[in-house]
Design a protein around this nucleic acid. Structure first.
Lengths: 255, 255
DNA sequence: ACCGCCGTTCCGACTGGCGGAACAGGCGGA
DNA sequence: TCCGCCTGTTCCGCCAGTCGGAACGGCGGT
């Protein structure tokens, strides 16, 4: 195994298990974990008991399933607070969310994906929790907003790599269509997601830039339910405010 | 090594490194990490590059220090959201914090320590971020509130185990004094922290119970700066409300 | 030029991880 | 009730991955 040099494969495998719990907290059986990460039940058992021993995972006494333990929760909470990044953008996002009753996500661009690092949720989108912690770019407002401002050469390479998987029947699955849309995003200064990731969910997203390098580093998005706003209303009411917020965040966060 | 059975020591060591970053995000050098977790530089290097490879850690290009990567941040954010626990108590805590401009912490009791799993901070205690994700019990309002309601036999064993380390000159370091104070806590229904963990920081804490088993599972605390309220004022204004909130949380959270 | 500390790589010794197989317990269907 | 299936768990021999000392190269000090 391992074309890569000098990495700890045990640790890497172990992290795969943590990842699993980052996506769904439904709880897993040992065999399920073993199957999903592709290791033997024996190894899975060893890893899982290690996590349990240290309080990162715990077994739900009722269902017998493995779930996240308080230690992970506390560690996660602490990491988020420790993070200068989150600390800086939080007041801006919270204030914006509170003022207009908006659902706001902040994502960072990395590894051909967008990582959700802060979310401020509103009541009406509480149902849409299905966003996992890392997501593909092409069906998110935040993802398209970020993509649109990647420098042309890197973008071309990225486009070649991406698999445009359909999440709904509105998801863009054609490279040419996506490229055209990115052009539009550059003109408007923000991107739209019109039920492309989840039926009933619309969003607009604007890019975040590093003031040091000038490169795009992520995006911020406003989300809404189609029951609350139509796409047109949502854009008309909030697009200006979104772009303004993105600028404010870019100014504060030094990346 | 390993009196314990069947655990993955590589993973355990690797997790120790993550822990480090949960406590301080100042950033570490490789040698520092190796020294702190007590492994060779070679091993530390292997673990750290593994983390980096996967995006959990990253090197700050300016300082050269290892810091948390976006992946960890995103994973942490996701875990917090996935957690039913946090999801249930969040609206209650947020509403309470907003209504009175309070700083509120929620902690879970485990392994002779209190794990901070949710925090809602206010402006005036922003300075007090030094609370790490797991903390000893005896110098926190939340810790003393939880301790006071542990069943007598378990409490006796716990008291014998605890080392009453002083954090300030007001920290209780004597077992008899602590026991007397716990009696007072049981009478009042809440605990006080009068600059016992940090100069200038006061708090009151109330226990959370499992309605299923009846046992204490954690505590919730209100924090304030001495510049804002005196201990007496703080208690008079908020103690009733605190106890009420603790009951509400206990009712909602099924543990 | 020196020194000290940084991260990184190479190496041989060895230990801890590996997975197949076998065991125990719980649950549901026949 | 018995049987099959799936759960988690333990045992074991083999091999691979981890270990730490030592040595290398790069950078920023005095």
């Amino acid at each position: 195994m391992s074309g890569k040099a000098n990495i700890s494969e045990s640790l890497a495998k172990g992290l795969l298990i943590l990842d699993l719990f980052g996506i769904e907290d439904a709880g897993f059986t040992l065999s399920e974990i073993a199957a999903r990460v592709g290791i033997s039940k024996t190894s899975a058992h060893r890893y899982v008991t290690t996590y349990c021993e240290q309080g990162y995972l715990a077994r739900d006494p009722r269902s017998g399933l493995y779930r996240l333990g308080v230690r992970t929760l506390a560690l996660a909470q602490s990491m988020i607070e420790q993070s200068e990044l989150v600390r800086l953008l939080r007041p801006l996002v919270d204030e914006a969310a509170a003022r207009h009753g908006l659902h706001i996500d902040v994502g960072i661009l990395a590894n051909d994906a967008i990582y959700l690092i802060y979310r401020r949720d509103s009541v009406d989108t509480h149902a849409f929790r299905s966003f996992s912690y890392a997501s593909a770019l092409h069906y998110l407002a935040a993802g398209k907003a970020a993509m649109a401002f990647i420098e042309p050469r890197a973008l071309a390479e990225l486009m070649a790599r991406l698999e445009l998987v359909a999440k709904t029947d509105r998801t863009i699955t054609d490279t040419a269509v996506l490229e055209a849309e990115l052009g539009q995003v550059r003109e408007l200064g923000y991107a739209r997601n019109n039920e492309e990731s989840l039926p009933g969910l619309i969003a607009i997203g604007a890019p975040l830039f590093s003031l040091r390098t000038g490169a795009v580093v992520g995006a911020v998005s406003f989300d809404s339910s189609t029951a609350t706003y139509s796409m047109q209303e949502f854009e008309r009411l909030f697009a200006g405010y979104l772009v303004e917020l993105a600028k404010k965040i870019s100014a504060v966060v030094s990346l």
